[in-house]
Nucleic acid binder design. Structure first.
Lengths: 216, 216
DNA sequence: CGTCTTCCCACCCGCAGGGGTGGTTTTTTC
DNA sequence: GAAAAAACCACCCCTGCGGGTGGGAAGACG
């Protein structure tokens, strides 16, 4: 029986990218709903919380998601595999933690095992940077991390706040700012914000529901 | 015969405010058109160019307006009454220069005299700050100058660029930034830009035409 | 007349931001 | 194997920004 899944992130392009990635595994994982700044509205086995430009698994957002009676299990999907952060997320209500470095096939397997209760933590051996998925600015050539930092800039966060949010060094954040600004051709934060506002970098709001019927 | 008038500025609220201000003088001055980032589309006696958050009278925008065959006379409407700027604007094609400090009754008289060719420069004796008119952020309590600076911030200009644009000292610009930020409750430029974007501080685009029939 | 508001300005100071330099590790491509 | 790309990081340096302080002039209002 397929895992019923809600995809949770504030950027529609992110949850749509994830849904596309999982389409090839429709018999094993069924995406029931995509939620942007909305609570899950139907019962699902797993709510997959993508941390792109969002609070990490140790924060209230994940805690609320895990406490939602519609949600069987809340699972974090993130680049950050620091042991302390993973532990904090699990202590915060998450029942699984999956690296974004995993290819789709292994993501699906992880979801099935988490749903069955036979596994919890799924790091990637390396970083599969060719994995599918989508993010704002991808067409403009921004890497995932550049896009994430730019999204947080567009949300109004300072560099220090971004470093805190992403669990990266301030120096790393500045590196992404530098390279990101060069890619989109802006010189300063104000221009970056205006660029971000006009290119889909503000969080979206809404829900997309998909009909689900059990195969006979 | 009434002066036919086009009102030119990139912020609809500004040209709408001016139009309201002049409504009481309908028999003497008729607002034919309000233009935001659009060329004047019908022949008018005077195109009144409001410099709110716009290039001053010595720049290409005024020059193009004065050169437009639809425009009888291009007139600058501004807070800046520096003799050198006024001269530069006149040399740039303006055929009149009116202070924003004038009350409406004197503005109308000035327009009539400019149309008749009997006057050109109309400073205010002082500053009539109670004059009507409208600008972005007025309902939020921003003064005209605070709003203008914030509009230019929202357009992406740096403090130095704003000082250059408005012919104010950098110190004055910073003062308006400080007081403006306090009024709208933001702490930094990024938040100010986001506030501006969501409160009508980006330039508008379009034209509003008004039917005009000569009184019998 | 005193107070408040608005427009305008000077100066002091600290730091957030952004330019630069350099590096390591992993994966992919030629 | 070499080069490129992406994620991650350190350090140096300068300046734009925004906090503060203070002031003057003019108009409106009580």
């Amino acid at each position: 029986m397929a895992v019923t899944l809600a995809l949770v992130n504030d950027y529609e392009v992110v949850v749509q990218g994830l849904a596309s990635m999982l389409r090839a595994y429709e018999g094993r994982v069924h995406v029931v709903e995509l939620d942007m700044e909305q609570a899950v509205s139907v019962p699902v086995d797993i709510a997959l919380y993508d941390t792109f430009a969002a609070p990490q698994g140790d924060q209230a957002q994940l805690h609320d998601l895990a406490a939602d009676p519609m949600v069987g299990k809340a699972v974090v999907y993130s680049w950050n595999m620091d042991a302390s952060l993973v532990e904090a997320a699990l202590a915060n209500g998450a029942q699984g933690y999956i690296s974004k470095g995993l290819p789709a096939s292994q993501l699906v397997l992880a979801l099935e095992e988490i749903r069955a209760g036979t596994g919890r933590i799924y790091p990637a051996a390396g970083r599969d940077l060719t994995s599918a998925g989508d993010w704002p600015g991808r067409h403009e050539g921004l890497t995932q991390r550049e896009a994430e930092v730019l999204s947080l800039i567009t949300q109004g966060l300072s560099n220090a706040e971004i470093a805190d949010r992403t669990h990266l060094s301030i120096n790393t954040v500045k590196s992404y700012i530098r390279s990101g600004y060069r890619r989109i051709g802006v010189d300063n934060r104000t221009q970056a914000v205006l660029w971000g506002v006009s290119h889909g970098f503000l969080p979206d709001r809404g829900r997309i529901t998909r009909a689900y019927t059990e195969s006979p």
